[in-house]
Amino acid sequence: MALTRRHLLYLAPLALFLVLAAYLLAGLALDPRHVPSVLIDKPVPDFALEGIEGGDGLSSKDLADGEIKLVNFFASWCIPCRAEHPFLMRLKDSGVKVYGINQRDKPEDAAAWLVRLGNPFAKIGADRKGRVSIDFGVYGLPESFIVDGVGRIRYKVTGPITNAHQYDDLVAQIEALRK
């Protein structure tokens, strides 16, 4: 028997259901913990931070130095930062500049952490009150931003980089921006 228009009408709810199911199924693959940054392609917020123990410090001007760089938010009390640390060292050794913003940390703890594990950062700013972190839309540690030569945020990594796959992804992003 040929399909009449009426038969097609009976199939409409099924079709509607399938469309909805596909839509929701795709949604299941999204990670609710991963909130996209609104600052992508925008200049970094203005800031000027002192160093952790009276060092050079870091300001938004340092980030417009003509190079592609990583800005990493970390703290000595942050356990995932500890797991990420070797990858930051590797990134620095590969010739990428890494800047650190030390969030809500005791200066002596942060300094000891860097002495013990090694210091991957070209410059570090101490964000003692967490205000610069909020200006960057940081909502957990660690978070990292790729900032381009004119000081624009181009890419954000939420959460730690703890495996080669994530590391390669990051390097690929940096390479793509260098072109």
Binding site: V35, V38, G137
Partner: peptide, 8 residues
């Protein structure tokens, strides 16, 4: 707040 954290 929205300028920093988005619509979410």
């Amino acid at each position: 707040v929205r300028a920093r954290y988005g619509d979410f």
